[in-house]
Design a protein around this nucleic acid. Structure first.
Lengths: 144, 144
DNA sequence: TTTAATGCAAACATTTTGCACCCTG
DNA sequence: CAGGGTGCAAAATGTTTGCATTAAA
């Protein structure tokens, strides 16, 4: 069993949940492409194309589980569905979303996080996860 | 006609759109409670309670219009529906969302915005609006 | 009077759930 | 073999749209 599977199994075992093929496949699909920002439908399609038979309902159930354990985070780019990305070791990143082509890139928020923590604590709020989205125009779209 | 109506009318006129009672009512409902973070359903309910007869479809159409003109911004708190708030004069603020009671408070992001702009430009991305959500626990929930 | 705005109901898209059956631990 | 996991279909939720009617400019 590789690293992914171990991390996942650890999380599941501590909650007396089971490590199934489906859960592992969904989790791997996310960790294999950390910058893909896939949604539930994307993941479902990709797995089926690989010949893996899963229902969309289970994809949703699994994503919710992964989000609850903290292994995956759920993000919103202003559409009416969610995207998912694996929680990585990096301090965290925000998203740059191009209003013209829709492409999403990530930027480091190392220098921003401490400021957020300070601002939150200043209001007597204990911060956990945070999410930053910046809407604007990428280089190629600006040139048009 | 008051200030709200004028701001709204300016936006509409330049697009050859009409200033209707409904649009004004929706816009006022938002500006009257800038920190309410209402969703479409909330606004619909509030207006109907005041005896104003509107359909939910029109609420959605109006909100989309207001968001497109930039008078209102659309925010997401990790649920599967949007919330709306009027665009204010302040530099901008982020949201502190309590994972226990769900209450949302705002914090100033004056000191963060310049850092975001710098980070975005460093990646050859021209930033416009941005949105910051911080999930955590408010004071009263921490005491429980 | 012209053109846009609205209500209604139906369509759509996304996500959740009930239940019978299946699989992991 | 017990209890959680899954597929399927149906339901629930949130949002959009077509069309006939109404209202703003």
């Amino acid at each position: 069993m590789n690293k992914d599977a171990e991390a996942l199994q650890g999380c599941l075992r501590s909650r007396r949940l089971k490590l199934t093929k489906t859960r592992l496949a969904v989790f791997r699909e996310l960790t294999a492409f950390p910058d893909a920002h896939a949604n539930a439908y994307d993941i479902h399609e990709r797995l089926r194309k690989k010949g893996f038979r899963v229902s969309l309902a289970t994809i949703y159930r699994t994503l919710r589980l992964l989000v609850n354990t903290g292994l995956v985070s759920q993000i919103d780019f202003g559409e009416n569905h969610s995207h998912y990305e694996p929680e990585t070791a990096k301090t965290g990143h925000g998203h740059l979303i191009c209003l013209s082509c829709g492409k999403v890139r990530e930027f480091s928020r190392d220098r921003i996080l401490s400021e957020i923590t300070r601002a939150a604590r200043g209001m007597d709020f204990e911060p956990g996860k945070s999410s930053i989205q910046v809407f604007g125009f990428c280089r190629s779209c600006r040139r048009l």
